[in-house]
Nucleic acid binder design. Sequence first.
RNA 1: GCUUCCGUAGUUAAAUGGAUAUAAUAAACCCCUCCUAAGGGUUAGUUAUGGGUUCGAUUCCCGUCGGGAGUACCA
Length: 560
Amino acid sequence: MDYKKYIAEKIKVAGVSADEIAEAIAIPPNTEMGDYALPCFKFSKVLRQSPVAIAQNLAQSIGTDDVIAEVTALNGYLNFKLNKTGLAEATLDRIESEGAKYGSSDIGSGKTVCIDYSSVNIAKPFHIGHLSTTVIGGALYKIYNFLGYKVVGINHLGDYGTQFGKLICAYKHWGKRAEVEKGGIHAVNDLYVRFNSEATEEMEAEAREYFRLIESGDKEANEIFEWFKSLTLAYVNKIYERLGVKFDSYNGERFYSDKMQPVIDELKEKGLLKVSEGASIVDLEPYSMPPCLILRSDGASLYATRDLAAAYYRKNTYDFYKCLYVVAYQQNLHFKQIFKVLELLGKDWAKDMVHVAYGMVSLEDGAMSTRKGKVVWLEDVINKCVEKAYKVIEDKNPDLENKRDIAEKVGVGSVIFGALYNNKIKDIVFSYDKVLSFDGETGVYCQYTCARANSVLQKAKGMQFKTRKPAELLPQEYEVVKCLASFPETVKDAAEKYEPSYIARYAVDLSQKFNKFYFDCKILTAEEESRGFRVRLTEATLQTLQNALSLLGIGVPDKM
RNA sequence: GCUUCCGUAGUUAAAUGGAUAUAAUAAACCCCUCCUAAGGGUUAGUUAUGGGUUCGAUUCCCGUCGGGAGUACCA
């Protein structure tokens, strides 16, 4: 039920529509004031009355009913209190009947959303800089899916460019098949790092030739390349599995290397392509942007060219409602240019392209650099977190079964949660102290709350309750109820703003409210009248928390 | 230079233009005969700065200062 709309329908202000009123309805800073509030300042000009008087008049004219228990005027605000037990019953009923689907919706049915995320570079291991795109994209995938959209997850592989010529060159000079097979992706990366520090002029030339050979379909060069590619995918797929993310397409840059001509032709046809300093560009001066480079002076394509081809392909193949690019804000200009070029080409779907930008990750002593070998590998971070979780379990709960599985859930969950808790645009300075912290606003805190709720429910099994209906609600109980009721709205907001952090914040918020309730109100040892309801409230909290965390790719252990 | 993002307790962060700016963390102290102490409680602000719009600005606009990113043949 949409309470804002319900309230708006009851309020009559001359010359203001119910929709506008619903839009203006806000949530007061604390529950004692009310559950919803209408600020009346806006109406004072139209009605020629003071906001205080308007609120007072409206308060008297609006009657209470089953839903609205009380209407009061305060300082120019019209405050509404809902019928608490009514809200509690409706919310719990809904969670009980919808279960794992609570919070989902069908608003997206019939619409497809493409999400371009993670986008690994072939032959490079995953470092913590890749964590954000992977988990933000993975969460958006689940969130849109939950809202009924068909989602296409695209791993736009970085599998094109002269660095692959360099890699093959380095392998031919220094590499040994057995060593690479043993050392896997890290051995390949070592070759790349070595090339960047030791390559001679001749080797650079050789590398360019190898890249050309890959392009022209040379058998040996392609075999080595495909081998490196399969090593990379095998490596990252293990990480993807642990993080709970998946993809429907691995079409990367190479896939588009033969699909660019139509875009180039169309740019020419529409008179958008200009030759400048020997290169073919689209002039974006009128939009105060540097030109978008389409072809180099030697005729070769560029990043932008392939991205335009990819956009065409995705529109034709998936007919998307939206196409998201989960890529760091460093590429703001690139995407602004691409989207503008599509607009200039007359594609009305250019407006459906969204760059979901996020902040950079750096180390305490500065930026990371793969070429210099100054990196923190994601796999190491995950492993250390899982190890720490295991030690904590050994310490606190040594008799637990499946300690390894639980440590995996806790450790991995902690890494994901840490990456998703803040607004995505914020820069992050990586520190092990922070990721390994399991106190406060963390994924562990939410998981612990679930385990606690679960423990209560285990003990409640088989108990008989006089009633499961809510009676007069205590403030702590009501806070939990309100929070539970707001989950579906939170999921929609997260999708609309492309902000998984809204879900993470929600999970902490609900956990805090539940813990307060848990601490202040006894559940199993309460009086008979409230025991049944409190158990239901605990069930509903556990269910909702699980739903929220699973949207982030975080598993919930029964015990920990 | 130009474009763009950011600046909130010691630290890290929250807040569709609304009421008394919300948390966590660090430090100190209190709470396990009662559902897991990975928990709960007590102790912190001139929202960088100067203007503007507004009944009302952390939020929107302009300037200043400080920081990040990008800025033609890499991706």
